[in-house]
């Protein structure tokens, strides 16, 4: 599904990613753990195609197609989705309007008819209740005045509504209380299937306990230092990152 080879990325001439190699087969959930500043969010943004991040070297393939140079929009339409750590507010644009525009952009790309309003409402209401959100959520301006928890739930709502092939969760657990964390984890588990792949980026193993990833990687200074299973996440939780720095 996703193949990342020797990926080197810089921002404002500062090297952040220094050669990432990562393969995530279809149906698998991978986690990347790392300290602040280790390059985790840079990886998420680079996979999404954010042009502020310059790819100096290496490549990204999705289903054997080289997407390293592909635009943000085309990557999205081809099935890449990022749950952002700090999703931006768009005042005056309702959640419903935004979400429907996003769904219909995907439908158009797939050559399907627009989703009608009734179907859209039924679909979104179902997801909203799974996320313990009120229907009135759809009327609010996107991310405008949302609490930390609401922002994360809004991202999961979009994830479930768009049902992408490859989801990247960038610190989706940060700032959540335990109930919200469980709700979000349930949402992610609902999404995960044998037909898609997920990359979870986090500081802590807390969220991973609920999701149980197939592979855990630890990132240090722009490189993947160690990979393993859930026991690696537990070890990091217990011992911190310093033992990996050597």
């Amino acid at each position: 599904m996703i193949k990342i080879k020797n990926l080197q990325v810089s921002i404002d001439e500062k090297d952040i990613l220094k050669g990432i190699d990562l393969e995530i087969p279809k149906g698998e959930v991978h986690a990347i753990m790392g300290r602040n500043g280790s390059g985790k969010s840079t990886l998420a943004n680079t996979l999404a195609g954010n042009e502020k991040f310059e790819v100096k070297n290496g490549s990204i393939h999705m289903n054997d197609v080289d997407i390293t140079e592909m635009s943000v929009e085309n990557r999205a339409l081809n099935g890449i989705f990022v749950c952002f750590q700090y999703p931006v507010a768009i005042p005056g644009v309702s959640m419903a309007y935004f979400l429907r525009a996003a769904i219909n952009a995907h439908f158009e790309h797939q050559g399907k008819e627009e989703m009608d309003a009734v179907e859209f409402l039924n679909k979104s209401k179902k997801i909203l209740s799974e996320l313990n959100l009120d229907d009135s959520f759809l009327k609010r301006s996107i991310n405008d005045g949302f609490s930390g928890g609401e922002k994360k739930k809004s991202e999961i709502l979009q994830l479930l509504a768009l049902n992408p092939k490859f989801a990247i969760l960038d610190e989706t657990d940060s700032g959540l209380d335990i109930d919200a964390l469980k709700t979000v984890a349930n949402g992610v588990n609902k999404f995960n299937s044998k037909n898609n792949s997920t990359l979870i980026i986090t500081h802590y193993e807390r969220l991973l306990e609920y999701i149980n990833p197939d592979v855990v990687h630890v990132m240090v200074d722009g490189k993947i230092k160690k990979s393993g299973d859930m026991s690696l996440a537990k070890e990091v939780e217990k011992k911190g990152y310093s033992w990996l720095l050597k």
Binding site: G49, V72, I90, A101, A102, H106
Partner: peptide, 9 residues
């Protein structure tokens, strides 16, 4: 960028 990432041109 946020809109583009959701497939909106």
């Amino acid at each position: 960028f946020y809109c583009n990432q959701r497939g909106i041109n």
